[in-house]
């Protein structure tokens, strides 16, 4: 039982990161019907900005982290304006490739500047691990879970309890309707890209001290973000969070109770299993077409 709880705990802290990434993908997807296939590289970029700001500009860590999130927010606006709007008329295939290519540019840039090196990310807090019963809780687990939990509370509060949130929901429901009541849909799309990338950056900043900082940082998280979205129900905000947490726990349990070599493909297995059993995911609306 101890082992099961321990696995669940560390699965939840991993899952918190997946949840954040899945949620940031979903925010953009719900607003623009675009899935950002380059998101992993934006996650990486967020972490790299923190590194640059801390090491080269010598900002205190917290300020650096906030600045990096803001930079990525700005980058989101820029990406939407400069790269997505101009190809609006084209098919979805173009958006997919555009996001991949932008990711490549970021990764290529990071590689060009820091290619051969792998950096230890500065640590924020060094909390000694403590015990709850036989359960070990470390600073990382506590820190990540707390930040993600606070962030989610704020996010869902804004979404469901404020006027801004109601407007966002309205645009999600019907863009034309929203335009009629005077919402600037284009600006809305841009700001949702901004929010999505900023949230991704937050995930990158949280995970980098553990995964170390290198240009390929984001790749493994992207596919897990996808799996979390699929599991929770494609396009469902709450589903993305629940899916992320479940995926985190599932990886640990699969790894321990079945076979550790399955841990790496848990995400893929979940994607396929969801397809076979319930394509709509746990909380999804219908995403399939009937012809």
């Amino acid at each position: 039982m101890d082992i099961f709880l321990q696995l669940t705990l560390s699965g939840l802290s991993q899952g918190a990161i997946f949840a954040l990434i899945a949620l940031s993908l979903t925010v953009v997807y719900r607003a623009t019907t675009i899935v950002n296939f380059g998101h992993g590289d934006f996650v990486m970029a967020g972490a790299f900005f923190v590194y640059v700001l801390v090491i080269y500009v010598e900002l205190p860590y917290v300020f650096a982290a906030i600045s990096a999130v803001l930079i990525m927010l700005g980058m989101g606006l820029g990406v939407s304006r400069g790269f997505i709007d101009p190809i609006k008329a084209g098919p979805h295939i173009g958006f997919a490739m555009m996001s991949i290519s932008l990711g490549y540019v970021l990764r290529g840039g990071a590689r060009f500047l820091w290619g051969r090196e792998v950096f230890p990310m500065p640590r924020v807090f060094d909390i000694e691990p403590f015990f709850i019963g036989n359960l070990v809780v470390t600073g990382d687990v506590l820190f990540i879970s707390a930040i993600v939990a606070v962030f989610l509370l704020i996010f869902f509060f804004i979404f469901y309890r404020t006027t801004t949130g109601v407007i966002i929901q309205a645009v999600y429901q019907s863009e034309r309707g929203a335009t009629l009541i005077g919402v600037n849909v284009r600006a809305f799309h841009q700001s949702m890209w901004g929010v999505g990338l900023a949230m991704g950056a937050l995930a990158g900043i949280l995970i980098a001290p553990i995964s170390l900082l290198h240009p390929d940082l984001g790749a493994t998280f992207l596919i897990r973000g996808f799996a979390a979205m699929t599991l929770g129900g494609f396009g469902s905000l709450g589903g993305a969070v629940v899916g992320g947490l479940l995926l985190g726990v599932a990886e640990q349990l699969f790894g321990f109770y079945i076979n550790s070599s399955l841990q790496d493909i848990t995400a893929y297995l979940i994607i396929v299993a969801v397809l076979v059993i319930r394509p709509a995911g746990l909380f999804g609306r219908t995403v399939t077409v009937r012809v």
Binding site: I223, P279, V287
Partner: peptide, 19 residues
């Protein structure tokens, strides 16, 4: 054929490749 389209299809087929 199960009616899965667009990005959802993209992700599932990516998973197939990786598996």
């Amino acid at each position: 054929l199960r009616g899965i389209r667009l990005y959802y299809l993209a992700i599932i087929t990516l998973a197939f490749g990786e598996l």
